[in-house]
């Protein structure tokens, strides 16, 4: 139940983000400082999330050669192809290969 409630709260919050200016604050402008800060929410959260996903429940970060190799390869392919499909294919292949070789 609490999982469903958590999902519903995120859904409601997301709707409010999407609706607030359209429904209620059409004449208001977002202050420049907030706009600049919002631009950096995405990269900051993604960087933090990647580390968090590799952290176990005891707070140890499990990052070794396979993970680093896959990130470098995946990041390079994302930059060159701008395709999630290729990023996933190459990143996972490099991960599996390095896991098998080490």
């Amino acid at each position: 139940m609490s999982d469903f409630l958590a999902t519903a709260v995120v859904g409601l919050g997301t709707y409010l983000f999407r609706a607030i200016f359209i429904v209620a604050l059409a004449k208001r402008r977002i202050p420049e400082t907030v706009l600049v800060a919002l631009k950096y929410v995405g990269p900051a959260v993604l960087g933090a999330l990647i580390v968090a996903l590799l952290t176990d429940s005891d707070g140890n970060v499990a990052i070794g050669i396979p993970e680093v190799a896959a990130f470098v390869a995946g990041g390079f392919v994302a930059h060159r192809t701008r395709s999630h499909v290729w990023t996933l294919v190459v990143g996972m292949t490099v991960y599996w290969l390095t896991l098998a070789l080490i």
Partner: peptide, 10 residues
């Protein structure tokens, strides 16, 4: 995390 790396780079 690989997908997040992709999103990050883009």
């Amino acid at each position: 995390p690989i997908l997040f790396i992709g999103l990050l780079v883009l």
